[in-house]
Structure formats: C-alpha cells, structure tokens
Design a protein around this nucleic acid. Structure first.
Ligand SMILES: [Mn+2]
Ligand SMILES: [Mn+2]
Ligand SMILES: [Mn+2]
Ligand SMILES: [Mn+2]
Lengths: 218, 218
DNA sequence: ATAAATTTTTAGTCTTATCTAAACTTTAAG
DNA sequence: CTTAAAGTTTAGATAAGACTAAAAATTTAT
C-alpha cells in the first residue's frame, strides 16, 4: 500500500532523477514538493523502509525498481486522465493538470486499462509527454528544444517543457500548438531571441519561449 | 474546505437521515462508517464547528443546509461516475461502487459539469438511484419494493435497495435488470417468498430478494 | 587545512483521524 | 421510582504527515 503522499514524492523523485542518473538531493525534493527539507527527510526514510528508494544518509536517494514502477504508474494515470479531459470533456490543455493531480491517485487497475482502451491507446498526453504502457515502458521520442534549431531549418512542434498554465495560454494566444510547423528565420545572438514563421505568420519569440518548446526536425 | 473524511461522514449522515427526519445517532453513524462511536463523536464535533451539522450532546445530529448541499454534491459525483464507468468504460453494475467511492472526492466543479454533459445529463445511476442536479435538487421517482406488490399485478424493475456486489451478481445470474418486466404470480405467506414471471420465465424468489428490488407498477 | 556556508538530519511540536478504556447520560425494566 | 442496560462522550494514546529550531555532516572558500 502506497499512500497518496508517498506517490507524490515518488513522482517527484522520478522527475528529478530522470536525466542525470545521479542520486536526488533532499533539498531538491523538498523544493519541488513545496515543503521543508525535514519533511522530505521523514518521507525518504519511510520510502526507504518500504523498499521504494535506495537511501544513504546525506547522500540523497534513487528510486528502486519497485519505486520506479510505482512512480511510472502514477505518471501513466496522470497523462491518461489529461487525454480524457481534453479529448472527451472540453478541457483545454492549460486546465487539465490540477485535476489530473487528483485523478492520478485513483486506485483501480481495471479503471486505468479501460480508460486507456476508451481513449484508443494514446501514446502521448496533451502536452506531448509520452504515456507509459501498462508494463511501465515509456515510448521514447526524439525531440529537441526549439532554441537548438539552426537558422533556416524547418521543424514541427511536438511538446512543451514548461506546461504551466501561463506558458500554455501564451501559446494559445499565438496559435502555437502541437503539430504547428515552425521555420527558424533568424536568431539574435544578443538575447537569444529568434524570429520564426509559424502557420505562415512571422513572429519574434524570446529565449524563454524557444527554450520551452520541443520540436522535431523534418 | 471539506476533507475527504468529512465528506464521507456527511454522506453517511445524509443517507441515515433520508427517510425519517429525526436526528441521526452517533452509533448509527459509527456503524455505517465501520468505525467506533468515539471516533464518530470526534467528527461530529468537527462538523458541528464547521456549521455542517446541528448537534446537541447525546441527542444526535442533523445536517444543516450547508451540510446537506455538501453531502448531495458528493452523492451527485458518485452517481455520475458510476454512469461513466458503466456506459463509457465496460464496467458492470457490481464493479462500480468501490471506484466511485474514490472518484466522488475529486474536487473540480468544471469536471463534474463536463462529465454530466458528456453523459447526456443522466437522471439515474446504474442502480436506479436518482442523480442530483447541479443545484442539489434530487429528481423524485415513485417506486416501491417488489415485496409490496399484490398478487396478479405487473410491474417493472426500476432500482435496487441493496447494491452490494453479491446481490447484483445474483440478479445478473437470473437476468434481472433495470427495465425487466415482472409479474407477481403468487405469494407465500409462510416465508414471504413469491413466484414471479420475469422475462417470460417463472421463478420463485425469496423475501430477501423481493425486499431489495424497487419496482414501478404499470 | 581550517573556517564558513550550505545541506541534511534530528528532536520536539502540531493537526487529523483513529483507537481503548473510563466516565457520564439516557432509556428501559422491574 | 430506582436500578440496570444501552448509548454517548471524554481522556489519553497512536500513526501519518507536516513544521520549527537546533545539531550534525558535507561542501566551498579562504
Ligand atoms: Mn500534468
Ligand atoms: Mn501533461
Ligand atoms: Mn455506489
Ligand atoms: Mn449507485
């Protein structure tokens, strides 16, 4: 039995440890969870006793195999629910996260499987993030930040790095969505802004925007 | 802010006080909640302080207007989710309750409204129970127990009083469902069993069954 | 290499929701 | 009307999860 709070910690540890495989620090966990380091330490001990993380005092934590599977299961549910909210109910992509944070904790294997089937086995959520399958495998997609694309190249928007409501609303405002064709017209060295052509409309976007859009080159 | 546990107590008090408008006893609440009377007393005090129930020591509780609305909101969500599980995912009516017990606590007004719309504004759940509307009004349906129907009369099954998995599976086994036509052939005074014709098949059912099926006479 | 700064852990407290045991109130019998 | 039984509340304890303040370990800087 994994509690709701434990699930949230596991998810956070998973996301923090996703790229570099080094161990995750207590402070980093506390910061992401918007709690205090002492609370994180308490929870880490509990997760360690349950065999969900490997922990050495002062050296941070890493998910164990069971912990990894538990984290992925929660992320799977989160993303499936986000697809449901956008595709079946009329939520927009900036409204789904908060509700999915609640729905991801519903415990029913059958529900998850039936929901997945009802949604026709989606492979990614409304923000372009991959949906793990029922075995915990995460489909890999090669994507890069728009900021890395060279001048003159054409690409297609496949995801967002920042999925905050503010950023998503900014994208909506300028009709930038998953699937949008983007051509890099020019890049400004000074402030790392870039001029791009999106949906045949030319626009200059800031470094902040270019560093939070994932694209795939054609 | 009403906690998950408070919501469950409110729901229980609502159901216990549904028919007789007398106040609900501590013991009755504790029993339904599968907890101890002392725990119920603690919670009652908390609900009373929040203005959700009217409470006098040793005299039991009654829901206040706010408490009633909070309880109905939870029941509304419970029943809408049950409809979703049966109509959209392939759950059977004996599998939905446990999952709905979790889903009923998801807090999102928009989710509830969109779900209701997605389901085409159902007025009853898979067990024949009415679904409150967004204002908290509960559609009333005149129904009576099959046990009360006189010999020779024809009626139609419109709900179950006991919605336990065991009873629902029994009904499935004999192809008794909402909408089934039932004619009372004869009644046995000794054990209150009755012989009925359901879907053109004659069958004798026990008092237990007849007292847990709601019907509407034609 | 030592001191200072930072990070992490521990100790002790708080809140929510639960429990047992004991005390108190109400109800039912005699 | 008094006593026994049943129902209810209080007192004190526990577990989960969080917090503050203080101690300990590690890292960084002089
Ligand atoms: Mn999300
Ligand atoms: Mn997402
Ligand atoms: Mn139910
Ligand atoms: Mn129901």
């Amino acid at each position: 039995m994994v509690t709701l709070s434990e699930e949230n910690y596991l998810k956070t540890i998973f996301h923090l440890g996703r790229h570099d495989k080094a161990s995750v620090s207590t402070n980093a966990i506390a910061q992401k969870m918007e709690t205090k380091a002492s609370s994180a330490t308490d929870m880490i001990k509990k997760l360690s006793e349950k065999g969900l993380v490997d922990y050495q005092k002062y050296k941070g934590v890493q998910l164990s195999e069971n912990g990894r599977l538990a984290a992925i299961s929660v992320i799977r549910k989160h993303r499936l629910w986000e697809v449901f909210l956008v595709n079946k109910l009329s939520f927009s992509w900036d409204e789904v996260h908060e509700v999915a944070e609640q729905l991801e904790h519903i415990k029913s294997e059958k529900l998850t499987l039936e929901l997945e089937s009802f949604l026709d086995y989606p492979t990614q959520d409304p923000h372009g993030d991959p949906i793990p399958d029922s075995n915990g495998s995460i489909p890999s997609t090669q994507k890069l930040l728009l900021a890395k694309v060279k001048q003159g190249h054409q690409c297609i928007c496949v995801g967002v790095k920042d999925s905050s409501s503010e950023f998503l609303k900014y994208l909506d405002k300028y009709k930038i969505a998953l699937g949008s064709q983007i051509k890099v017209i020019s890049k400004e060295a000074y402030d790392e802004s870039m001029t791009v052509k999106i949906n045949d409309i030319q626009k200059t976007i800031s470094k902040e925007v270019a560093q939070n859009l994932f694209v795939k080159t054609n």
